[in-house]
Write a protein that binds this DNA or RNA. Structure first.
Lengths: 213, 213
DNA sequence: AACTTGTCCTGTCATGCCGTCAGCTTACCG
DNA sequence: CGGTAAGCTGACGGCATGACAGGACAAGTT
């Protein structure tokens, strides 16, 4: 699927080269989670990787290029989120459990990748198509099966409900909540209480009914 | 209320100085809406304002400092959002209208200030307390009265509903939807359809009931 | 072992932005 | 008209960027 890893000037990277490249990516990831995106400099990444800036530019056109690489890796990884929805039941108490697991899994994924997702979100908001596409891939891994679930659950009874719109809103809410969980804390809502609250929203959105007690 | 405007080295700015300062802020605002935050350089802002970089550093410690200034200005302006909720009725059809006006007003505010809000959102997500505070001020201008509305409407019938949590989730959803309206487009949801969908969510959240037909 | 080939890394350099300072110009006031 | 403070900029050291050529290295060939 993916072609050979290549340097900026067209050479094919060998074993050692790929190691260096990977080390640079790892260090960049680390930098992103410790300092503001705006302040991440090539020279710092190179220093941390024990190499020189020139080496960095052999493998990536610039910081943004390397970030895209990390982001694409993460987007691949997000495919696993599908399993949180696919083939799950939304009936009764099982449905509520499905909803809770979805919220849990999604928040965990976001927390695990929060640094890179922050940059992806910014890039998407700024109108960069490459970042936008990556963000959509992550969101769609949940939104697509969720829209399907909405259609299956409510589509027959209420034709006015747009599955895509509902699923989109829910996923948007989940992403924003994950990114800004601190805001909820400042509203006096503990992270522990946030999860069931979101799970309830998801259940309501998908089924259109109040959950069973 | 606000003390005199001062330069970085402590002088008080006079009429002419304030004009220059304002011009720099305006140009920075313009830059933010046309190029990625990461690429906004002091020298470009200065050039656009027809002045020199040294002048910029007379009025602001760095780009971030100037951005904070713009953001604070916008946060002041956000106080007007309160009127979208304060003293409004949530009963029956009037409630649905209130909800629609709220969504409309909020999205309009976000769209109007999208460039600066993008940066504020990033800063807040990165853990910068100053940006976080500004973001909370904007969100709270709607979230606070909305939480109050939830308590008034549902608090008596259902003690388990946490007004702050519901209002927080709704405002978070609105903010994220405004920031990423393009995502909805890509899900096949037109901006026109997005608004009523969000309005419905808000109505449901506040009243806990399905809207009247 | 000497040679060849292609990968990998870095020293170096021109360029450009950052952030500071001394010093010049302008405006205001008595 | 002289004093004072505001306002602005040229110039500079420092650092990041991005390109290149060339040296180090590994692996295979003769």
């Amino acid at each position: 699927m993916t072609g050979q890893v290549r340097t900026v000037d067209g050479r094919v990277a060998g074993r050692r080269g790929q190691e260096t490249r990977q080390k640079l990516l790892d260090c960049l990831r680390e930098m992103l989670s410790t300092s503001p995106y705006r302040d991440v400099k090539v020279i710092d990444v190179a220093r941390m990787a024990g190499t020189s800036p020139a080496t960095f530019y052999q493998y990536f056109p610039d910081v943004e290029g390397a970030v895209l690489e990390i982001a694409e890796e993460m987007a691949e990884d997000s495919g696993g989120l599908k399993e949180l929805v696919d083939g799950k039941s939304w009936a009764g108490k099982t449905g509520l459990a499905t909803s809770e697991e979805l919220v849990d899994g999604f928040l965990a994924f976001w927390r695990k990748n929060d640094a890179i997702l922050r940059v992806v979100t910014l890039g998407a908001a700024e109108g960069d198509k490459r970042f936008f596409k990556i963000r959509m891939k992550v969101l769609n891994s949940v939104a697509s099966p969720l829209a399907e679930a909405v259609r299956n659950t409510q589509g027959k009874t209420d034709k006015t409900v747009d599955g895509s719109a509902v699923a989109g809103a829910l996923v948007t809410l989940l992403a924003a909540s994950a990114e800004h969980s601190k805001a909820f804390t400042s509203w006096g809502v503990k992270v522990k209480d946030l999860k069931p609250s979101l799970a309830l929203q998801v259940y309501l959105g998908v089924t259109g009914k109040k959950p069973p007690k």
